[in-house]
Nucleic acid binder design. Structure first.
Lengths: 189, 189
DNA sequence: GGATTGACCGAAATTGTTTTACGGTCATTG
DNA sequence: CAATGACCGTAAAACAATTTCGGTCAATCC
């Protein structure tokens, strides 16, 4: 049995169930059935252990997004599916869901930083697809980073914030239509 | 001297300097040079006094936005100028600036509610202009409320959030160009 | 003798208690 | 009878006492 893997497994479960702050190194050691000192032979501190785990979750999210799209489809379809998939992942995945909750309620610094990395990954993913669409002439020339950022923020606004403040969520079709008739339309070459 | 006016003046100064929570009714009474009980003959409680003041600030913001635009200009110009003006007002105005700070740090409920009204005012303002543009055939048919919401959220993202996370602010020209070439372009009839 | 451990340390958070401050009232006052 | 400020109950701040936790390292084990 691989001690390092056991530690990561235990920490993942604990972070997912209790969040970053409420997870103690003693707890992780106990679940992983190792001495607390052993953890520190693999990870220099709690935050590094945490970062490693979140970053592997981010890679998982990227894989799922990649798997959700078909390279042949137009950019607007790819962007919509990828954004919806990643936003859903962010909310549904046990670890990230717990972290979002913790950020809202406790504002743990380490958590804020990692959720920012999640955001960067999503924006970066969309920016890369957008750049490809520009290169192949499907989309007009524009700053992919800025437009990807706008897409991300707008999707978050409609998928997450709108239901929170206005009560009723918007259907996925409504959101897709809205973007098709405004932003994506303006992007067409 | 008008007691009611004096009270509003005193409360405005106090809310602007110390925020909602840190303003006490004793403090307001002292500044206004009235007994505390007198305040309660005009306002039923602290929150109502606060609401009255914020709502008058909102009207002030609307006036400034209205004054900043020319009815003859195309929607994209009006929307840009109005959004920039209102976002600037929101950040620069002593009262609203203090409230934004208080919301971030203390999350006072009464403050959250009033800042939500500020947001609603901005979105409503843009939605109204958008509806007019649609009626006069300048802009394609769309849901004005949803598109105005997207505009607001995107502008906040670029004007306020981008500089906070990425360090460097974007020039107003960069922002205007970005929207002209994407969202506004997609809206054209 | 290198890997593993958990008792141990100081800092930081939590808990429990006392004191203070505050929003709102209302009997008194001018 | 409009205006006031002492007064009330609650809620928050302040303080003290206690516990918890991240990280270390001498002792232990294999």
């Amino acid at each position: 049995m691989d001690r390092r893997k056991e530690i990561i497994l235990a920490a993942t479960r604990s972070f997912s169930m209790f969040g970053y702050k409420a997870t103690t190194m003693d707890q992780v050691a106990k679940i992983a059935k190792v001495g607390k000192g052993t953890i520190y032979t693999f990870f220099s501190n709690k935050e590094e252990l945490f970062q490693e785990i979140v970053r592997s979750t981010i890679r998982e999210m990227r894989s799922e997004a990649q798997a959700a799209i078909n390279p042949d489809e137009p950019f607007r379809i790819k962007a919509h599916l990828a954004l919806m998939k990643m936003l859903e992942f962010r909310e549904q995945h046990a670890l990230l869901g717990k972290l979002i909750e913790e950020e809202k309620e406790i504002r743990t610094q380490a958590v804020q930083e990692m959720l920012f990395e999640v955001e960067e990954e999503i924006v970066g993913f969309i920016a890369a697809k957008l750049k490809m669409a520009i290169d192949r002439g499907e989309v007009r020339k524009c700053d992919p980073e800025l437009v990807a950022y706008m897409l991300f923020k707008s999707y978050v606004a409609f998928v997450i914030e709108w239901p929170e403040t206005r009560g009723e969520p918007l259907s996925e079709q409504t959101i897709a239509d809205l973007f098709n008739e405004t932003l994506f339309r303006g992007l067409l070459a």
